[in-house]
Design a protein around this nucleic acid. Sequence first.
DNA 1: GCCAACGTTGGC
DNA 2: GCCAACGTTGGC
Length: 139
Amino acid sequence: MAYWLFKSEPDVFGWEEQVALGDTGGEWHGVRNYQARNNMRAMQPGDLGFFYHSQKGRAVVGIVEVTAPCHPDSTTDDPRWDCVDVRALRSFARAVTLEEIRAVPELAEMVLVKNSRLSVQPVAAEEWHRICALGDTAP
DNA sequence: GCCAACGTTGGC
DNA sequence: GCCAACGTTGGC
């Protein structure tokens, strides 16, 4: 079981919208970056991911579960791009902001901190637990 | 709104 | 295969 982080602009597709998709969830489509795509290819059903609001928000707000392995992205005919399916698992009791994350020395190596542009990224188990604790949320 | 960082494209 | 030009992302 691995941990990940999915980034989305709340103005485009926010956590509320993910929650509204219910237990069925949906495709994490629209990724057009090889590194991000490769991360999705490495995912397996049951993996967990943080749902992070970029731009306006800049905080981890929820936890999603990967429900389907990588498959073609239905929003394009380009065979290069595929994606997983995710569903909302639970909301953070308290959103954990990027500012808070940056303030924790143990989280300085997070991809979110080091490479802020990567939209789908791996999260280490220690990082996962630390952030869940910061948000008063079950890991 | 600005700008730095990064990824992609295309000419050579 | 290199590198300049360009486009995009996201923090501030």
